[in-house]
């Protein structure tokens, strides 16, 4: 059960989106977020939906999975949209007591709804198409310039990759220990609060023991290999920008420009 959480949402594949360099994907995701926030007019909203559709197709992720990522925050989105509907001024279409619905409010609320859904759906694509390790290594490279400011980028990324590497291992271990204690009659989530907390000791303690054991083993292994931090280290799989990455950047920038243009065109609202 925990294993399903820790592999993240990554779906292995070979789509266009999968083949992009993680750095490109991180930067483009950032660009996409800004683009969503700048989307104002009905025309650019339509354009945004078209883009989302194109990206989903390029990622070859089932659309239903993408919208599953949106589902948990739908209540938040709806509440936000409703607030907007009632608070924005404009031509009054309907009113009751202090509640008023205006044409502007309706439009703003609807726009917000679409924009937020697009935002979450779009951002979920990067997690569906990029493994956690690739993300970590992309992030490391993007942060590399900060080394000049004595920011410990290498140490940070080493810690990050070790954490990511061992999350599934520890999760598996946790499953195993829980099962082993259940086999000896452990009960979780019943009884008084004190009992519930007490029930977790037989699980947490062995988990810590094993985490420490692994940490010591890993330290020894790292020292035996004479690891000495980032200076002069090369990578087994160096990240390389390819033509596909440049093409993607150009496409995203063009799309960004289109949004700005569509925003400017005079429209009924």
């Amino acid at each position: 059960m925990t294993r399903d959480l820790t592999v993240g949402q990554f779906i292995p594949g070979h789509s266009l989106m999968h083949r992009l360099d993680p750095r490109t994907k991180l930067m483009l995701t950032f660009l996409f977020i800004i683009q969503v926030f700048l989307t104002k007019s009905a025309l650019s909203l339509l354009f945004l939906l078209l883009l989302l559709w194109i990206y989903i197709v390029c990622a070859q992720v089932p659309a239903q999975k993408v919208f599953r990522a949106v589902r948990p925050i739908i209540p938040v989105i709806i509440v936000t949209a409703l607030l907007n509907i009632f608070y924005v001024s404009g031509h009054v279409l309907w009113h009751y007591a202090f509640l008023r619905i205006t044409d502007q409010g309706l439009f703003t609320g609807f726009t917000l709804l679409v924009r937020l859904i697009t935002l979450i759906a779009g951002c979920s694509l990067i997690t569906y198409t990029t493994s956690l390790n690739a993300l970590a290594s992309g992030l490391e490279q993007l942060l590399a310039p900060l080394k000049r400011l004595h920011f410990p980028v290498n140490e940070l990324s080493m810690t990050l990759s070790i954490t990511l590497r061992f999350l599934p291992t520890l999760a598996e271990e946790l499953d195993r220990i829980i099962e082993a204690q259940k086999a000896r009659g452990a009960q979780f989530g019943t009884g008084t609060i004190l009992n519930r907390i007490r029930a977790f000791f037989p699980v947490i303690l062995p988990l810590f023991m094993s985490a420490f054991r692994r940490a010591f083993e890993l330290t020894n292994a790292i020292e035996c290999r004479c690891y000495h931090g980032g200076e002069g280290r090369t990578k087994l799989h160096p990240l390389k920008l390819r033509r596909l990455d440049y093409a993607a950047v150009i496409f995203f920038l063009a799309a960004f420009a289109m949004t700005l243009i569509f925003n400017g065109i005079r429209q009924p609202f």
């Binding site: 271990e173 195993r176 220990i177 099962e179 082993a180 204690q181 259940k182 086999a183 000896r184 009659g185 009960q187 000791f201 037989p202 303690l205 062995p206 023991m209 094993s210």
Partner: peptide, 19 residues
């Protein structure tokens, strides 16, 4: 749960569950 007391299960490397 009561059946688990009658079917004892010893996992692989059971020493790792000692606490």
């Amino acid at each position: 749960r009561s059946i688990r007391f009658q079917i004892g299960l010893v996992f692989q490397y059971p020493e790792t569950q000692i606490f």
